[in-house]
Design a protein around this nucleic acid. Structure first.
Lengths: 115, 115
DNA sequence: CCACCATATCGACGTTTGTCAATGTCTGTG
DNA sequence: CACAGACATTGACAAACGTCGATATGGTGG
């Protein structure tokens, strides 16, 4: 499930109870899936490289060498990140350009700190 | 490595360059290790239950039933969370009480959103 | 001291994950 | 059209992971 579709927990609301409700099994499942997508050193570095790039767009050929992994492996990691809604893929001609989905990481971070 | 020991990235500093440096392999490795610790539905629920408890302390016997897992499995997950610096274990008599390490999840969330 | 209870550890098992080589697909070029 | 280059997909394999039953440990109460 893309990060953007994850339900936001009770924004606003003046009277949150002192003891919150624990996560349901389903919400824990979906949140864990998103976190698993980013909880990998290679994928963290890939996301980091995309985020650090000046124009916010990187093609696979620019990613293979910095992480020191084969092209199929990098492609696999990118697919995981795209499926999780963290990266966006845009194919132009022969190349595929990847960019950060705005707010995706922040959304994940927010849900993590309110678990 | 406990979350508390993870280096904080460049707090302050007025002149961060426009394009940040990508994560080093070592930092990606340690951050991934911490994220993996929390990126599991059972562990998310365990942390959630501890966080939602009124007095902030829960013993294992109170955790086994809500997550629907065997006692050894719950004990294993709790060990992972303690080793990651997310939960704190205090043994009093026969029982072991678990509590959230203050700021651990927030620290993780912060590093996640600045990757 | 012995039996009991809560918890931790061990050993085993099936599943998932990360990785690569080989191959497929599509696009631009000679 | 044939070829080359960029990327995706497939298949295979080892390593890591989640889970449980059995067992060990260590404090409590009779």
């Amino acid at each position: 499930m893309p990060v953007a579709e994850l339900p936001i927990t009770a924004t606003g609301g003046c009277c949150a109870p002192a003891t919150r409700e624990p996560l349901s099994a389903e919400k824990a499942q979906t949140l864990a899936r998103s976190l698993k997508a980013i909880a990998d050193p290679a994928r963290l570095r890939l996301v980091s490289i995309v985020a650090a790039s000046g124009d916010g767009e990187v093609c696979v050929c620019d990613l293979t060498e910095p992480v020191g992994l084969s092209q199929p492996t990098v492609s696999h990691h990118l697919k995981v990140l795209v499926d999780a809604g963290i990266l966006h893929r845009e194919k132009r001609g022969t190349w595929a350009y990847f960019s950060l989905v705005p707010g995706a990481l922040d959304s994940l971070a927010g849900m993590l700190s309110t678990v």
